[in-house]
């Protein structure tokens, strides 16, 4: 589904990703872990197509097609979703209105008519229940005055609404208490199927107790320096990142 080859990327001439190789197949859950500043969020932004980041070398293929030249919204239309670490506020735009616009824009890109209001309401009701979201929440302005947990839950709600093929969860666990974490993780797990894939980006192993990865990769200084199974995450939790750094620097 996603194939990244020798990816180099920089922001404002500062080189951050220095040769990433990664392949994610349908049905798989991958986790990317690593110390602060290792390039985790950059990788997420580059896959999603943020303009500030310049791909200086390498390729990103999504379902066999090179997506490097595609705008962020075109990648979204293809089914790439990014759950933001810091979701932005859009005052005066309700969650429902935002989702309606997002869904209909995506449909339009595919040559489909707007989703009938009845279906939209039904979908919203279903997904809100799945994520235990109070419907009143949906008429509030997007992310405005939301608590950290509400913001993250809202991100996963949007993911549920858009039903992406590849969901990238960027530090979705940060700012969540244990109950919220469980709800969010349950949501993600319920949405999992053999046809979609999840890339979890996290600093801590905690989330991985709930969203169990098939593969764990350690990112350090812009490269994947170690890959393994979920046991690698436990090892990192116990021993921290220092031993990895030592290994790399040795």
């Amino acid at each position: 589904m996603l194939k990244i080859k020798n990816l180099h990327a920089s922001v404002e001439d500062k080189s951050i990703l220095k040769g990433i190789n990664l392949e994610i197949k349908p049905g798989e859950v991958h986790a990317i872990m690593g110390p602060n500043g290792s390039g985790k969020s950059t990788l997420a932004s580059v896959i999603a197509g943020k303009e500030d980041y310049e791909v200086t070398d390498g390729e990103i293929f999504f379902e066999g097609k090179d997506i490097n030249e595609l705008a962020a919204e075109e990648r979204a239309h293809k089914g790439i979703f990014l759950s933001f670490q810091y979701p932005v506020e859009i005052p005066g735009v309700s969650v429902t209105n935002f989702m309606k616009t997002a869904i209909n824009e995506t449909r339009k890109a595919k040559g489909l008519e707007d989703m009938p209001a009845k279906d939209m309401l039904k979908l919203i009701r279903e997904k809100a229940e799945l994520l235990e979201i109070d419907r009143k929440f949906l008429s509030r302005s997007l992310n405005e005055g939301f608590s950290g947990g509400e913001k993250k839950r809202n991100e996963i709600f949007q993911m549920a609404m858009l039903e992406p093929k590849l969901a990238i969860l960027d530090e979705t666990d940060s700012g969540l208490d244990i109950d919220a974490l469980r709800i969010v993780a349950n949501g993600v797990n319920k949405l999992k199927s053999k046809d979609n894939a999840v890339l979890v980006i996290t600093h801590y192993q905690r989330l991985l107790d709930y969203i169990v990865p098939d593969f764990v990769h350690v990112l350090y200084k812009g490269r994947i320096v170690k890959s393994g199974t979920k046991e690698l995450a436990h090892e990192l939790e116990e021993k921290g990142y220092d031993w990895i750094k030592e290994e790399v620097n040795a």
């Binding site: 999603a48 197509g49 943020k50 303009e51 705008a71 962020a72 919204e73 979204a76 239309h77 979703f81 990014l82 933001f84 979701p87 932005v88 859009i90 935002f98 616009t101 997002a102 869904i103 824009e105 995506t106 890109a109 949007q158 858009l162």
Partner: peptide, 12 residues
Amino acid sequence: DQIFYCNQRGIS
């Protein structure tokens, strides 16, 4: 960042 957020959700 607001624009990118919208773009990422498929909104031009």
